[in-house]
Design a binder for these strands. Structure first.
Lengths: 215, 215
DNA sequence: ACCTGAACACCGTTCAAGT
DNA sequence: ACCTGAACACCGTTCAAGT
């Protein structure tokens, strides 16, 4: 079968093209099984064996995509956190970072899922490392709250672990069970950070104010 | 090829045998892709088409297994909750239920993962229903804490949603990233229920006691 | 050096045929 | 009524061969 668009460049830009194709395919049909090697190479206009010149197997290809997405996640968090942190508002920065995490997960359901669907045993140091970037920024956000005196937590890393797990659960469950009557994400993040990290919650303060007025 | 063990009974016990085989295969190799139709029927001693007499396709088979596991999860929670609830200790019952959820997830990593790996669009009412059984018992546990006066939360359902998401995140992340230095599950559940639901935490109380002694 | 054509062993699923 | 044998269209992957 003759391909309409033959491979043009003899550089290793093919590698990037394959990653682009895999990433966009993953975004469209967010089932990992639908993202087949033949679909990827078809989109680029090349035959299956050409892919194996750049990736050892499908898993390596997926891992490269995961690496890209983690980098994008890190950038999104950094961007969201920057402004409030510059103004010295540690709690607002932490909150913004958490919401950025959830927003990003919601906008890339297939991409987010694949980040953690990687098999246990074949998990790579690479993935661990990029994951820890997002985690470290969470630890940093909590430490900043401690230093600003708005968090009464003692172990920032242990608290960050719990917050991360909760965020991860929110990210996966809300995108997976869309029928469920979820409260707004902002509310849940607010309640979580208030309860677990101990930062002041505008929502709780507003409720207390209202009940005092009633009394 | 002659099968060693030919199909014996002409009942629909074959259906149960297939479910058993699929469930045990899922427990051994906890990758859903490894649980192939041919592996399942091989274990039972039957040919692939025989499976389609009892299940429309592989997804229906997986869904039936999911239903079984959810039932087992519900039973585990009920059992863990029963004793403390009988003694009127609402907070202890809630805590026991959450820990039972996490224990069960840890003991059945493949089984737990498959519960939520079901595709968004093909998700069935059945799965939603059995899932809501576990969720309703969480709502009930929180309501009991409200009535016992050990929780200052106003909306039990909204709180339960956040707790459920957090538990789900803990269940998946701790089993997926085993290298990560997780705090003990008991500690995290304690912190979560203390912070989000507002029930008293033995750990926090102990820490406060210790710091008072130091002062 | 980079890519293709053709094949391999697998997969889920179907269908005619056997008892 | 229940199961098998053989085939279908797919999949990931490999290998010899082309330029």
């Amino acid at each position: 079968m003759n391909r309409e668009r033959r491979a043009r460049g003899h550089g290793d830009e093919l590698r990037e093209e394959l990653l682009d194709a895999a990433e966009s395919l993953l975004a469209e049909r967010d089932d990992e099984r639908q993202v087949t090697i033949r679909a990827i190479v078809d989109r680029v206009g090349v035959t299956p064996p050409a892919l194996y010149l750049h990736f050892a197997n499908k898993q390596e290809l997926v891992k490269a995509v995961v690496g890209r997405r983690f980098a994008a996640l890190g950038a999104a968090i950094e961007h969201a956190v920057a402004d409030p942190a510059d103004r010295g508002e540690a709690a607002a920065a932490l909150r913004a970072g958490c919401l950025a995490y959830l927003d990003w997960a919601r906008e890339n359901p297939g991409g987010y899922a694949v980040l953690f669907r990687v098999r246990r045993d074949t998990q790579l140091v690479t993935t661990e490392e990029v994951a820890s970037v997002a985690f470290d920024s969470l630890v940093g956000g909590i430490r900043a709250c401690q230093e600003a005196g708005v968090s009464g937590v003692d172990d920032a890393r242990a608290t960050a672990a719990l917050v991360w797990a909760s965020l991860h659960g929110l990210a996966t469950l809300t995108s997976l069970r869309t029928q469920f009557p979820w409260p707004p994400l902002e509310t849940m993040v607010d309640d979580l950070l208030h309860g677990v990290v101990g930062i002041p919650s505008k929502r709780v303060q507003a409720r207390l104010g209202a009940s005092e007025e009633q009394a």
